Amino acid sequence: MPASLLELKKRIASVKQTSKITEAMHMVSAAKLNQTEKRDKGYQEYNQLLHQTVSRLMSASVIDYLNKDNYRLTQDNIDYDDVFGVGIISDMIKPREEIHSVGYLVVTGDRGLVGSYNSSVIKQMMSLVADDKLQGRESKILSVGSVGSQFFKKNNLNVVYEKGGVSDVPTFKETLPIVSTAIKMYLNGVYDELYVCYTHHVNSLSSAFRAEKMLPIVDLDIGTMEAKESKKIEFEVAPDIDSVLATLLPQFARAEIYGAILDAKTAEHASSMTAMKSATDNAKDLVSSLSLQMNRARQAQITTELTEIVSGANALE
């Protein structure tokens, strides 16, 4: 068999083997995507209830302090130090007067073969860092995922925390050291605001970059309910609202950050699944093209051999 045919045959076998690997990776990513989507659905239900509870408790506490009926609240006209006193509650919800540095908890992957998942987050993150620089603010990176950590350190960004090896289907317990460290750094004044930057999972085919402010906590429904309505709490609070809020607010912040990490992992699996499906389809197309080339080369070889046989027979006559 001519060398060209042997090369084509070897290449076809190699591409077929690669397609088997990418197809297997596609199936693995699909299974992990299914798991994270189910876990994310359960988290969303929990987070919604926690959000409502914290919002109602804060609204009731503020209303009791103001002692005014039909007063419509907004987070802009509340002095939380006066309402809750100096402590954990005010520290987590009161915006700081001056923003000197901003913390970014950036979620990337630990590996490649996930399409544009990692590059998209890094590109958007660098844009945020550039904006901070123009405004005279320092950017501090908390990197979750080895791909992001390697890039940020290579580009001399201020990485104050890094964590790699987060499992493909993360649990709250596993991410607790990450979120606890992020909150502790904020309370200790390492940065004045904390944003979580990650890829939001829209569906299996699309995703979107998000940079959500986590600290100080601003995502509360104070001001969306009238005072009389917000006083209607369907549960008893013991020992008092402030004590409960002092426990719930850190838990609420942890849940929000965990939800972002879980959402990012879901988007990563979706991106990996799409990339592996595309790779498998491309491999199959390449096998088809190479098979066609081999068949044509084989036909040409057979035609040449027949021509030589006929020519030899005619020469003997």
Rank of each mutant, 00 (worst) to 15 (best):
N188P: 00
Q150R: 15
P177F: 06
E162D: 13
Q135H: 14
S206H: 12
S149L: 13
T175V: 14
G145V: 05
T181L: 02
N155R: 12
N158D: 14
G148P: 04
L215F: 02
G145C: 09
I183F: 01
L157V: 08
G189F: 00
Q135P: 01
N158F: 08
E174T: 02
I183K: 12
M214N: 13
L187P: 01
V169S: 04
S207M: 15
N188H: 13
P170W: 11
V147W: 01
S204Q: 10
L142Q: 09
T171I: 02
V202M: 09
Y161E: 04
S139Y: 01
N203T: 07
S146T: 08
Y195L: 07
Y186K: 02
G136F: 03
S143N: 08
E162R: 06
E162F: 07
V196H: 01
L194D: 02
L157R: 12
F151N: 07
P170N: 05
M214F: 08
V179P: 00
F172M: 12
G165V: 06
N156L: 09
S180H: 13
C197F: 02
R137G: 03
N203G: 05
L187H: 08
G164L: 05
C197E: 14
D168E: 14
L142A: 08
L134G: 10
A182T: 00
E174R: 05
K213G: 01
C197W: 02
D168C: 05
V147P: 00
T175C: 13
I141W: 05
N203Q: 11
P216Y: 07
S207E: 06
G165H: 09
Y198I: 01
I183R: 12
N188T: 15
G145S: 10
K154S: 15
K184E: 10
G165S: 07
K163L: 10
L194V: 05
P170R: 11
T199S: 14
Y195I: 05
N156W: 09
V144G: 06
E212T: 07
V179A: 11
I178A: 00
F152P: 02
G189D: 11
G189N: 11
P216W: 08
K173W: 01
V159K: 07
